[in-house]
């Protein structure tokens, strides 16, 4: 009995040590990219160049870059809820080009399953995620969490966020974004990708000199300089969502860090926190659930779609849908 317990603790210790070493090594990819070790190619997100046509809109008013949460392994593995949400959003805002084939957890849009060395491991993990046992699939989540932490780190963040901004710029150009027209860009980060949305906003704005808005859907983000640079930040949070609170691990998000980017952005009225009602972070009861309904009869996903459509309408001069109220600036902390 005692021996078994000791063995168990030893295995647990080895696993924890392995995870810590893995975490420590995780910035090598980002920094190696900066140093030029891995070349400069930016990969397409599964949609080959030239095949973006079905998603293009004539005369678009705005572009929305959608980045998914930490469970993603490639640019294509959007869950059915995410796909349904984007489909409804596209219908609600007909002159919006939605770019959804971004894999933001890599410096060059390369999916995990396409990596030169570990592709097999990630394919296996993706299969486990889809078919079980799901615990093994969480390797992907863990790996992607390191990337979020890299983006939030003051040492690596400026490098990672630049790499991601280049990926986003690459995607915008693939979707026929005209830099001279300076159409508004909405960077939408769901869950952990909220940090990416905030982090890469300054670089996109610097390069394109266009309006850049951040939409965080239950986003986890630190106090990043991007909060001050983005034209506006919308932070959508549900009452049941606890995951977005991981962002409060960053001292800059604490109320008494008065000089932090987060608190300065809030004082300048650049952040609007939108309460989404009785919604959870993901899955059933989450922001994108189309089978749960609000007291007024709208499905959760429709409320989310309408809120985002309203935000886009505010900045593009679209006529807002009549049943929607303007986003409210919430004064208290998230």
């Amino acid at each position: 009995m005692w021996q078994t317990l000791t063995d168990l603790l030893t295995y647990l210790g080895v696993i924890i040590a392995g995870i810590l070493v893995w975490a420590a090594l995780s910035p090598i990819e980002t920094m190696g990219w900066w140093a030029g070790w891995f070349g400069d190619t930016i990969h397409d997100g599964g949609i080959k160049p030239g095949n973006e046509t079905p998603r293009l809109r004539p005369n678009p008013d705005a572009f929305l870059l959608f980045m998914s949460g930490v469970g993603k392994a490639t640019g294509e593995t959007l869950s059915f809820r995410e796909q349904e949400f984007l489909r409804r959003l596209a219908r609600a805002v007909p002159r919006l080009v939605i770019v959804d084939d971004i894999f933001p957890y890599s410096v060059n849009n390369m999916p995990l399953t396409g990596q030169p060395v570990f592709a097999r491991l990630w394919r296996w993990a993706l299969q486990r995620k889809l078919n079980g046992p799901r615990l093994a699939g969480y390797l992907i989540n863990l790996r992607n969490i390191w990337q979020v932490l890299i983006s939030a780190d003051k040492r690596y963040g400026p490098v990672y966020n630049q790499s991601l901004a280049e990926v986003l710029l690459h995607s915008l150009l693939r979707y026929r974004y005209d830099p001279d027209a300076r159409k508004p860009i909405f960077i939408m980060g769901y869950s952990g990708a909220g940090q990416f949305a905030v982090g890469c906003a300054p670089y996109l704005k610097e390069w394109l000199q266009a309006p850049v808005y951040v939409i965080s859907l239950g986003g986890v983000f630190a106090s990043d300089p991007g909060l001050l640079v983005a034209d506006h930040v919308y932070h959508l949070i549900g009452d049941r969502d606890r995951s977005h609170r991981y962002g409060l691990l960053a001292p800059g998000r604490w109320p008494f860090s008065v000089a932090s980017d987060w608190n300065r952005a809030r004082r300048q009225g650049k952040v609007t926190i939108i309460r989404m009602g009785d919604m959870d972070h993901s899955g059933r009861g989450g922001y994108l659930d189309h089978q749960r309904y609000l007291p007024d009869g709208r499905a959760f996903v429709d409320k989310t779609v309408e809120t985002i459509a309203q935000i886009i309408a505010t900045h593009t001069g679209h006529t807002p849908a009549p049943q929607l109220q303007a986003p409210v600036h919430v004064a208290q902390a998230a």
Binding site: W34, G50, N51, T53, K154, R155, Y156, P158, V159, Q162, E166, L169, H170, L173, R176, D178, P179, W207, P225
Partner: peptide, 29 residues
Amino acid sequence: VPNLRRRPVWLTNMDQWRTRRATAKKPAP
């Protein structure tokens, strides 16, 4: 680090790139 920039040639090459795409036959090869 916060002041470092990888200056992409994207911005300077953008016109050339757009022209290339515009002149390409549909669907854009």
